[in-house]
Write a protein that binds this DNA or RNA. Structure first.
Lengths: 186, 186
DNA sequence: TTGATTATTTATCATTTGTAAAATGTTTTC
DNA sequence: GAAAACATTTTACAAATGATAAATAATCAA
């Protein structure tokens, strides 16, 4: 299924809106570990994962912190930059070989003016992201590291392709702690 | 400044959109500790704090957990219910005597169809909430409890009116831990 | 105001997680 | 295939946080 067809399952789109989106969406491919968007840049492209997986990350006190993982059919966007227009200290990196759908944000925002339905589509997509983020807070606030790890394991089989150091910082713990948890489980 | 004037600072609104919003917005007042929305209900009203402060909370393993605080000029909405239409295990409670602007969500969503600018306004308001939530994750993921407490103290003077037990669960720690941190600071 | 209730702090001990360093395992590159 | 680079686990010890209970302090309601 192409991306616009998927969008149609979320919001009905007029034929002209469909055409405008088709014209806007491009595909790009990345090799494992490629940087997709540099730390310090301003977000001008929205991505959706077509295949593979990618992460949003940043540096904190000399440590590489993974803030977010995205898997097929999920958005990957540095929202704090997209919505404010300001540069962000976060970057996006391919974890495996990855194919992404890419959408230029400036063109998209212009389409919002002409196509109420396109603005609605992305409103809803980001509302869904917002809800996911709220669930993540619940998890960080009151689940133990072990519970959070087990949750992540359940969420997708892709976890197996992700280096443990990325998973550890995503869970808010050290790699050593994660190793202990893993030893404890099995 | 009334609420619609505040909205105009975010997105220009047509006169008919302004009128529609004016007609929709009501005000309600609550006493300290009043339940504003019950745990288990479905969100059908958006609130913005006019004065006082309120919290979103839920029960987890017999503990009362505060997920969110809202202060004047901030939205307070159980987004995971508003955007999915499903009931939520979270509730809203007044922490101090509180005045709220209230907006019926079903009427609002109908206005989205008629007024592109109103949909845009709320799209942007919730994008801002989303960005705040991302910042909160950063905080929970890689700041110590002490750092998180100091951050919260800086954010608003209203903190002084909030019982410590609410603050402790908001920070993801026990009340005893928070007491130790406070003793440590002063 | 007084007694009851609720909120906060303190103390003790157990558990979890962090830090640092070394050992082991895996992957990549020549 | 071997060396180098990178990833994961293990160990030992330190620091932070949790659980429980008791001691104070503050607030509320008759």
């Amino acid at each position: 299924m192409n991306l616009v067809s998927y969008f149609q399952t979320i919001v009905p789109l007029s034929p002209t809106a469909q055409d405008a989106l088709e014209a806007l969406i491009t595909t790009s491919t990345y090799r494992k570990n490629d940087i997709i968007q540099e730390i310090g840049s301003t977000c001008r492209t929205l991505y959706m994962v077509k295949s593979g997986c990618a992460r949003i990350f940043y540096w904190k006190d000399g440590n590489d912190i993974t803030e977010h993982f995205s898997f097929p059919n999920e958005l990957i966007v540095r929202a704090e930059s997209l919505f404010t227009g300001k540069p962000t200290s976060k970057g996006i990196q391919a974890i495996t070989d990855t194919e992404l759908y890419a959408i230029d944000s400036l063109v998209l925002f212009r389409l919002y003016d002409q196509h109420h339905d396109i603005e609605r589509l992305f409103r809803i997509l980001f509302e869904q992201e917002y809800v996911n983020t709220i669930k993540r807070i619940e998890s960080l606030q009151f689940h133990s590291a072990k519970e959070r790890y087990l949750e992540l394991l359940k969420s997708t089989q892709y976890v197996q392709h992700i280096p443990l150091k990325y998973i550890a910082s995503y869970l808010g713990i050290t790699q050593v702690s994660l190793s202990r948890i893993r030893a404890d489980i099995s």
